Computed example of a mutant assay.
Amino acid sequence: MKTAYAAVYDTWADWEIGHLLVELRTGRFTGVPWQVVTVGESREPVVTMGGLRVVPDLALADVEPDDGDLLVLAGSGLWDTGQGDTFAKLAQRFLDSGIPVAAICGATAGLARAGVLDERKHTSAAKEYLQATGYQGSDNYLDERAVVDGDLITAGPDAPVQFARATLQRLGLADERKLDAYEGVFHRADPAAYPILVG
């Protein structure tokens, strides 16, 4: 079974990665369930932005990129205060090992500060949001809901469904027809998309 590492830290934005983690863990529309393993700075509990208390399965020091198949980074207040560099460094290690990294919202700012986005196409909440980090990658910024560039998937805070879709696409877990139906059901509330999604 493949493994997705989900980074957890205080005030991480539950909803931003919720769609993706559910689809990976259950495999309900892809037919391929994954193991989801939470990773914290330590094994001490963290509290999400929504107030859920999460006890990490693993500490950061115990994570090796080659043991996993994806790293997921959610937004959080910590990214906007210049923290999270240990997770950004972990993301760089994953990318260096050819393992995909999916980052949404504030996590993109953390990756920008660490130089991870300088040479890769990416998106975020807004171009100006990332420019405030002082990063050198603004020429590679795309004003899209989600962007895939090789092993890196990025999205802004308003695009959790597109973030899930783009990541599932990058992982090869569904074809375009099913991915479009997924977005149709969960973003556009299109009843005609449901039979395609579950078919």
Rank of each mutant, 00 (worst) to 15 (best):
A7W: 02
F94H: 03
Y129I: 09
E23F: 00
A88K: 01
C105R: 04
T26K: 03
P33C: 13
G31D: 13
A107S: 15
D69T: 02
L168T: 03
L171E: 03
V63F: 08
A164S: 14
A164E: 12
G184F: 00
G50S: 14
R43S: 14
D10Y: 01
A4I: 04
D175G: 15
I99Q: 08
D190K: 00
P157V: 10
K89N: 09
D139E: 15
D57A: 14
A166Q: 03
A189V: 05
L130E: 00
G98T: 08
G77K: 02
Q169G: 06
I153N: 05
R188D: 14
E128P: 00
R43G: 12
Q35K: 15
P45D: 12
G18F: 02
R177W: 00
A112I: 05
A159I: 01
T86C: 10
V185F: 10
A74W: 01
P56Q: 09
A59L: 04
G106S: 11
V47D: 00
E41C: 01
V36D: 10
G82R: 01
T38C: 06
R177P: 00
A61G: 11
V46W: 00
R93S: 15
K121M: 11
D67C: 01
W15M: 12
R43D: 11
V46K: 02
Q131E: 15
D118A: 15
T3H: 11
